[in-house]
Design a protein around this nucleic acid. Structure first.
Length: 293
DNA sequence: CCGCGGGCCTGAGAGC
DNA sequence: TGCTCTCAGGCCCGCG
């Protein structure tokens, strides 16, 4: 499922149930997700207060009173839902994305406020890991992650610098979490479309020989900002089974301009182009060859 | 450093 | 109805 806007939507949904509450018990219902759980996974969570729930790239990050941090990644199909006392006792109080199938409920956080937070992940590409906060900077999962695209430090100069000398496509560069954190296939396609840049363009063309940002880099950063802000405001995109923690649908998928719109006419005013699809680095790229250069 | 193919998993949808 | 095939929002590895 999830790219930055979906993870951020999940974070906001979980925040009221998690922040300030104690994880009374972290219950794992199988031995692994993408990787085996650490042997002390539950022991390091049980009894800890969640001081704050943040996000880094596509990771949810729960800061615990012990000084540990719980990292949670949703993979392709991971989702959370919050089951409150009311929902537990009220028939139909929660509508599960796929009916009542609880086969893939893999982790349950029983919280001191009565909420139960359920992690469901059919494909099990998601994972969770507990680590000491002091070790975050050196952790393999995080150490090479690039800047947050909505953070102050991310601008045209930084993006151009990260792309300077790269002998790869702009599409591939933007999917590289070391260049910028949190973008995935959908939002890369959308940001490239909105900035009128070709996914095939050489990444290095975002910078000049002196490593300064070009106008293209400025446009691209603006497009990334715009599409992420709009998607977060819409509660993310609901493709297939993604829902918010409440069970509500996000609705940004209705605002896709190229993603999954092969064959439709380009939405740019005055452009008579048709949205095309091709495979790039093993992923579908959707774009308008007429106005993206 | 780069692209590519394959793998990890399950489920939805299309076509027959 | 049910089968088979393809594809999917992420990420990692090994190969050439």
């Amino acid at each position: 499922m999830p790219e930055l806007p979906e993870v951020e939507t999940v974070r906001r949904g979980l925040q009221p149930a998690m922040e300030g509450a104690v994880i009374v018990r972290a219950e794992t219902r199988r031995g692994d997700l993408r990787f085996p759980f650490q042997p002390d996974f539950s022991a390091r969570l049980d009894g800890q207060t969640v001081v704050s729930l943040g996000r880094r790239a596509k990771y949810l990050q729960a800061d615990l009173s012990s000084g540990d941090v719980l990292l949670m990644h949703l993979g392709m199909s991971g989702s959370f839902r919050v089951v409150s006392n009311a929902a537990v006792t009220t028939p139909g109080g929660f509508h599960h994305p796929r009916g009542d199938d609880r086969t893939h409920d893999h982790v349950l956080f029983h919280m001191s406020n009565g909420a139960m937070i359920v992690f469901n992940d059919p494909r099990r590409f998601g994972y969770m890991k507990v680590l000491a906060r002091a070790d975050m900077a050196s952790d393999p999962l995080l150490k090479d992650i690039g800047p947050e695209p909505l953070g102050n430090e991310f601008d045209a100069a930084m993006l151009a610098g990260a792309c300077a000398g790269k002998k790869t496509s702009l599409k591939a560069a933007l999917l590289d979490q070391r260049v910028v954190a949190g973008l995935g296939n959908i939002y890369v396609c959308e940001a490239l479309f909105r900035s009128r840049l070709s996914p095939r363009r050489l990444a290095a063309t975002l910078s000049t020989k002196k490593n300064a940002p070009t106008d293209h880099a400025v446009r691209l950063v603006e497009a990334i900002h715009a599409v992420l802000h709009q998607a977060i405001a819409a509660g993310g995109s609901s493709l297939r089974d993604h829902r918010q923690t409440s069970g509500e649908l996000g609705y940004f998928q209705h605002s896709f301009q190229v993603y999954d719109r092969e064959g439709e006419s380009c939405s740019t005013g005055g452009c008579a182009g048709i949205v095309k699809r091709f495979v790039q680095n093993g992923r579908s790229t959707f774009w308008c060859p007429k106005c993206q250069r």
